[in-house]
Design a protein around this nucleic acid. Structure first.
Lengths: 255, 255
DNA sequence: CTTTGTGAACAGTTTCACAGCC
DNA sequence: GGCTGTGAAACTGTTCACAAAG
């Protein structure tokens, strides 16, 4: 078993669609900003704009959580913040370990977005003995030898892998063996994990490649390959004709 | 104006599904690894395993690119590497600028995965005058004032934003005005861009929140969920109380 | 035989449009 | 009037299963 798979949600639980779950953090961020400005209520239209989605989608998403809005009025900001936080499990404390304290690991350790939600960086772990004891983001780096003990002592169930690709699987195996059941992987590798362990992957170069794909299409309107690559200046170049404000290009039918 | 979306395939191009495009880099990576080991051909089954997807999906994906396989044999590794690279636009040079050279920006600048595909870091840009001239990953950091000139001189069409959230929209506006049409955004903000500009977002805390959601669910399930999986080991941690035995549907929140 | 390529069934997601409540 | 909540429609993505090709 245990052939690598990014493992699906799988959970047979209450049916909140995966796509909705992925947007809840987005809503939460927008709501938190509103909350900080002491905005009491917000309409689906406004909130959707702030989160960068459309309002029908947002309403549908919220409908999976329950009926938390008031018709004719909108949603109570504080209440929604709480409900979404709870749904995401952010009302509890999630100790997290970050393994691999290079530039990326350090960036993660310093990233404010972690602490502000329920996440707490319980430990930073690196294989380089020279790093041991050095504080990063105020937290002393510990050696990989301590990994199992750290996870055990802190009840860590979420691990972040920011090591080079070559070390990722091995680190992953140790994390899983030590009891970690959710992994956020920044190394450009496919990780094999046993069933029941969730892996999410963030891959910098993949994102760029997807952009390149679309970028290439944009240029494909006329002057194609040129060693130069792109036409700078004036963003108003070969726009594919029309398109109004929010209107998305409709899916042109096959001839 | 158009609120930043996570991008839009859209144009009347040849219809490669977005989900397929997103997997091509994955296949490419697996194929590159095979290529380096001088493996001449690979079956959909093997390649799918290496890329972490299932083989039917892989074959369907490849069918959008054309018929590049040989029945009874599999796919020619080199040929497929070339075809996918070309489809993704990686056979051309993509100069990229990275704006915001903190830990994350530095991690990106040092990230090998960029250069190895068609991407070239044309410049590193930071608002801090103290950074100017300092080399990161062998490239001297330049001040934000130079942004427009750099983009123009290098024909940059892809920009990476690794600034704090507060600066991201402003940087984005300048990039777009200067001619950038694809943006990879690491700042935790929704960017507004005009139509025709693609934005992809990588958000560290969102990924963690999604993991937390699933992690939370697991806690209520594990009693029944031990079919073919593998209990990692006896988690010596504080297990949350457990749950009803046979319930394969944990119903609602137990408060 | 083995393995691809693909129509067709299925599953998940988004959008529409409007009934129902404030 | 304004706005939510939601069925139904439209669309996108995945899986199945098998005919066709080597």
């Amino acid at each position: 078993m245990a052939t690598g798979r990014t493992h699906r949600p799988a959970t047979r639980s209450r049916g909140i669609p995966e796509a909705t779950v992925a947007r809840l953090p987005l809503y939460l961020r927008a709501l938190t900003a509103l909350s900080e400005r002491s905005v009491p209520t917000v309409s689906s239209e406004e909130l959707a704009a702030a989160a960068g989605v459309n309002s029908a989608k947002l309403r549908k998403d919220f409908s999976y959580l329950g009926s938390y809005g008031t018709r004719g009025v909108g949603y109570d900001v504080e209440y929604l913040v709480y409900q979404i936080s709870r749904e995401l499990g952010l009302t509890q404390d999630w100790p997290v370990v970050i393994v691999g304290i290079g530039n990326l690991g350090a960036a993660l350790a310093n990233y404010g977005g972690f602490a502000s939600r329920g996440f707490r960086v319980a430990a930073l772990i690196d294989a380089d003995p020279a790093m041991a004891g050095k504080p990063v983001a105020g937290i002393p780096v510990q050696h990989t030898d301590e990994l199992e003990k750290i996870i055990d002592d802190n009840g860590v169930s979420i691990g972040v892998i920011a090591t080079p690709a070559g070390a990722a699987q091995q680190v992953c195996d140790r994390l899983v063996a030590a009891g970690v059941t959710s992994i956020l992987n920044f190394a450009p590798t496919v990780l094999s994990v046993p069933d029941g362990v969730d892996v999410r992957k963030v891959d910098l170069s993949i994102e760029l490649q997807i952009l390149a794909f679309h970028e290439q299409r944009k240029a494909g309107e006329e002057a194609a390959a040129n060693a130069d690559g792109a036409v700078p200046h004036t963003a108003a170049r070969k726009q594919p004709a029309d398109k109004g404000p929010d209107g998305d290009v409709p899916a042109v039918m096959p001839a």
